[in-house]
Design a protein around this nucleic acid. Sequence first.
DNA 1: ATATTTAAATACCAATCGGTACATAAATGT
DNA 2: ACATTTATGTACCGATTGGTATTTAAATAT
Lengths: 201, 201
Amino acid sequence: MTAEVKKSRGRPRVFDMDDALEKALRVFWKRGYEGASIAELTEALGINKPSLYAAFGNKEELFKKALTRYALGPVAFVSDVVNESTARKVAESFLEKAAEALTSPKNPKGCMIVQGALSCGEEAESVRNMLIMCRNGYEDLLAQRFEKAKAEGDLPDSVIARDLAKYLAILHQGMSVQATSGSSKQELLDISKLALNAWPN
Amino acid sequence: MTAEVKKSRGRPRVFDMDDALEKALRVFWKRGYEGASIAELTEALGINKPSLYAAFGNKEELFKKALTRYALGPVAFVSDVVNESTARKVAESFLEKAAEALTSPKNPKGCMIVQGALSCGEEAESVRNMLIMCRNGYEDLLAQRFEKAKAEGDLPDSVIARDLAKYLAILHQGMSVQATSGSSKQELLDISKLALNAWPN
DNA sequence: ATATTTAAATACCAATCGGTACATAAATGT
DNA sequence: ACATTTATGTACCGATTGGTATTTAAATAT
């Protein structure tokens, strides 16, 4: 049995909401929240404005939905890497996956959570704050993982888990900027290797 | 003798161009290029639109002038630190000055060259490219300094100067994002210290 | 068949965007 | 005194912004 039960009442939607959201995600990813106009979005989705508003609410809600999709897709690796067996491997894996994701030729360069609304007008402040929470969120995830590593004796007691997490977050965010400046995956991998020389024993 | 010779012909300008440019800089610094509207700029400068256009050309030219001022002011430290006596001291000084500049309570958080137009609409692409060139510019400056250090025997031949420069650039750019996410100067200094553990002997 | 439900397409909205025409005010040159 | 030059303030420009009202089309329920 295919799961799709389509006994919907009225006129059927002519576009696929999942496809549309993916397309919207890529516009926001490339342009940022402010830089993505409704006109560019509707053109990319191949639908008219009223359809977009009916399906997704408004621009901010569309962005939120795209962001959720982004978190579950292109940056899902963040929640994966904390399952690595050692703190060192978490860091290595995190940076490697980041270098890959930030420079993939299939996608816009850089990270949507970093670049989506770093500086913006007043009307985009709520989106900016959303992204700040996202960034702090994955940093916290890493910090918790490194706390665990300390408890397990995988990391010395002397290290500060939060510092390691923030170090990785800074590297990721800096690499995101670099990716939009033209750095290649290999360059980012080289710097990742260099950066890991700072890792505690 | 005060240098000001004011035998200007027509009606005198009622505002100080230097003050105005400083105010414009701070608006762009906080809001980014797209996020700063002409309305917000004229309000901050305390002048009317025609005065702004007469004095500075248009929005993009005003941004360029503000950017030049920014480069000569808040981020002049980049050209200073390369005069440190050793590569290690260059790196230490660079990161310390960056942490200070990015979190100063007197200024908007973060770096205008990093955040001014990371993601943007099509009409701001030229500004985006300007900022990319700025970022690559100071990275090049550091790379040259580290090449010199290698030639002097201050750094081992095995290190790649460009990698060290890019590492510092990534740290700076990541720290800029962190500053806008709420990180304090002390936090950034702590991470800087940690990051320097990766420095070659 | 017909009523009901939902989506599509067109056309429109006020507000804001960056940018200017134009008349007036304030200075200097002759 | 008067022409010239430059800046100011008001009022305006077309284009674009995010967002809707309204009509029409396409499906199901009865």
